[in-house]
Every structure is written in C-alpha cells, then in structure tokens.
C-alpha cells in the first residue's frame, strides 16, 4: 500500500444497498483521506453498520463505487481479501474468541501468512511475543494474558478487540461503537487510545455518544436514511437544523 498522508484512502460514491425494498444506503458518498480520523453519527437505521458491511465486503452494494487506496474495488472482493488489503473492523458487540486466552486472541490477529498450510506451527516467535506484550500493554490487558477471553468484563473485551485490530495493523480501522457499555473513565481512556492509534492509522469510528465524539475532536459525518445529512466539525454538525430535527424528531 503506497498511500501518502493526505491522499484519498477510501472513496465511496453513490453507494446504494437495498434489503427487500428497504434502502439501507441511498447514494451514499464519503471520502476519507489517509491519516484521517472520522466520526460517523446518525440515528438508528441511518445505515452506519451497513456502510461498514459494504467497506468490509460483507454486503455487496446494488449500485455505486467503493474504492480503497490506489484503485482496489471493494465491491468485487470478499472479506478475507479486503482484510488482507489493510482494512480491520471492530464490531458493535465485542467479538473475541471466548474459549481462547487473551494472548491467543492477539496472536490470531497478528499480521502474517493466513493460509491453512502455513498454520502448522507451534510456538510463537520472539518478535511475535514482543509485539503481543506491547499490544497488551497498550490496551491494559498485560495482567490478563493467560485468562480466557470469555471471562473478561465487557469493557476489557472491547479493548481486547481494539488490541486485535492493532495486531492486525491495518491501514484503515473501522470501529463500531467502541464505548457502548463503558464507564465514563473507560470512555475517556478509549478516546485517548483512538487518538494515539490515529497517529499511524486512519480510523472511521461510528458512535452514538456525542460527548465521546466531541472529545475526539475530528471531522464528523452525520448519516440519515442511508445518505449523508451533514458533514463538518461537531459544532457545525450539531448546529445544523436538519440534524437536530432528525435526532429530536419534529
């Protein structure tokens, strides 16, 4: 991947997705530059998760373009291929491998050869262990490495999943509601963590928590009924009368 700071990293143009006649995305267009962090807000059903599904290859759009980096057409690739291009995803509901240890969860996410015939390896290598140490440190899970991921608290699972994203080291991170169910202190730490990660990765974060989005201090895109309603700073967007109308009702 050869994108430079400031180049277009993700380009969505006129993306439309229809489920049984319901337009989940309606000619959605969005441009993300390399190195940027963007917050996406919008009421339930605005199409935030569907947008992530399109970007990660889970859903094929009926129309429109989705281009990543220097010309990779995301609408023609499947999930593993898109992941290999450098797009990682954190789900709304924390999804970790519950029956395996925290360490193994990160190990599975570490960048490397994903082919089955390369998987007959036993011990992890020294660089792998060092990288795991570093990541667990970053997400405050160093004392939990031997624990089964299923036994972690909700907030810890969220962080483990962010740690797995770091291990994957993708160019673009899609983060779906990272602070849902977190305490105020955890929310605060998560926003610092995302800002930290943003120094070396581009991030697209979906979040309902306006205080959290404000703390991030980044450009905001507000979706409504599958298309962009407003875009700009959080103050600009939240002052927009149509945004107020959508959020508060008439």
């Amino acid at each position: 991947m050869t994108t430079q700071q400031g180049d277009t990293l993700l380009y969505l143009d006129g993306v439309t997705v229809t489920f049984d006649g319901f337009r989940a995305l309606n000619t959605l267009s969005l441009v993300l530059t390399a190195g940027e962090m963007r917050a996406v807000i919008g009421p339930n059903g605005a199409g935030k998760t569907t947008m992530m599904d399109v970007i990660t290859g889970r859903t094929r759009p009926d129309a429109g373009k989705a281009i990543f980096g220097d010309g990779h057409d995301l609408t023609r690739l499947d999930e593993p291929a898109i992941a290999a291009l450098g797009i990682g995803r954190k789900f709304q509901k924390p999804t970790v491998f519950e029956t395996q240890t925290v360490e193994d969860n990160v190990l599975l996410a570490l960048e490397g050869d994903r082919r089955a015939r390369r998987a007959f390896r036993f011990a992890s290598t020294l660089p792998e262990r060092e990288r795991i140490d570093q990541i667990l440190e970053t997400v405050h899970l160093s004392n939990h490495r031997e624990r089964l991921a299923g036994g972690l608290s909700h907030g810890q699972k969220q962080w483990l999943e962010i740690g797995m994203l770091l291990a994957q080291d993708p160019e673009l991170l899609l983060v779906d509601e990272p602070v849902a169910g977190m305490t105020d202190a955890e929310t605060e730490e998560t926003s610092q963590l995302l800002v930290e990660i943003n120094r070396s990765h581009s991030i697209l974060v979906v979040e309902h928590d306006i205080a959290f989005v404000r703390a991030l201090g980044v450009k905001v895109t507000c979706l409504h009924e599958g298309s962009v309603l407003a875009e700009g700073s959080i103050d600009h967007v939240s002052a927009n009368p149509r945004v107020i109308e959508v959020y508060l009702g008439r």
Binding site: T56, R58, D78, E79, P80, A83, A84, G88, R89, F91, T95, V96, F97, E98, T99, Q100, L108, A109, R114, M164, Q168
Partner: peptide, 14 residues
C-alpha cells in the same frame, strides 16, 4: 477453534 466460535470474525481477520 476461532472458526467454530466466531466464523465471521475470523474472515474479517483475513
């Protein structure tokens, strides 16, 4: 094991 527990997640890991 990861495939057994969360197949979709494994795909998004590549």
């Amino acid at each position: 094991l990861a495939v057994r527990d969360a197949e979709a997640r494994v795909r998004f890991l590549g």
